[in-house]
């Protein structure tokens, strides 16, 4: 096992609020210690892109994803799920733990849970028709796509008649699991092949490592 560089870790904690030691984060996730350190290289770049405060703001999150300061309701929602402590910013531990869900090795159950929360915007434990409609209208408007209200209602009718098996007007967790198993393309976004190759993408982690013999 590697030895603990307490000074370097203490420095990282001061510089990056919420910083946890790579070995600790690796033990809680599908990432190896080296992969956590490679993710730290990515985190440093994103968290310093607007304000260099060691935390990722919503603006920095969107800038990293879209390479421009565009607003996207779906990205906002993902940010809210990454922001586990609900402080309006993402620290390094939040970042690693949330990205972990997108790791190819993580069980589908966890990915389905995350995707369910993504659409359950008011956290009632159900995906309600009004939430889906609200997100759909906002995204169509942001992307410049025009669909009549009649078409949107017809798409929602069809979706809910398929997904909402007990026809109570909302989709529960079991109905969602059943629906995505029949529509696997919906889960494509939940797996990031890049995460298997993170140490190659950010090789500089080796020079900044705070853990020996990784």
């Amino acid at each position: 096992m590697g030895c603990f560089h307490s000074t370097a870790t203490a420095r990282a904690r001061r510089r990056y609020p919420g910083y946890d030691h790579p070995m600790q984060l690796a033990s809680q996730t599908a990432f190896s210690v080296s992969e956590v350190e490679a993710l730290f290289e990515l985190f440093k770049t994103i968290s310093g892109s607007v304000v260099d405060d060691g935390l990722i703001s919503k603006e920095e999150f969107q800038l990293a994803l879209f390479k421009s300061k565009m607003d996207n309701i779906f990205a906002n929602r993902i940010f809210d799920l990454f922001d586990v402590k609900k402080r309006g910013v993402i620290d390094f531990a939040d970042f690693v733990q949330a990205l972990n869900v997108f790791h190819p090795s993580v069980p589908m159950e966890e990915k389905i849970d995350f995707s369910f929360k993504l659409y359950d915007m008011d956290n009632t434990g159900f995906i309600e028709r009004k939430e889906v409609k609200q997100m759909l209208i906002a995204l169509l408007s942001e992307s410049g796509m025009r669909l009549s209200d009649e078409t949107i209602e017809s798409i929602l009718d069809k979706t809910f008649s398929d997904a909402d098996v007990n026809q109570d007007g909302k989709i529960d967790r079991a109905e969602w699991e059943n629906f995505v198993s029949r529509n696997p393309s919906l889960m494509k976004i939940m797996t990031l092949p890049y995460l298997k190759d993170i140490t190659t993408t950010f090789p500089s982690f080796v020079f900044n490592s705070k853990v020996d013999d990784i």
Partner: peptide, 29 residues
């Protein structure tokens, strides 16, 4: 309005298409 293929999508497929969100953006230059 809206082409036929769009109308044939379910609401969640349409959300995915309209958001064009892909977290791969984090790893791309």
């Amino acid at each position: 309005p809206g082409d036929k293929s769009t109308r044939q999508m379910n609401a969640f497929q349409l959300i995915g298409m309209a958001s064009s969100l892909d977290l791969s953006g984090f790893f791309e230059e």
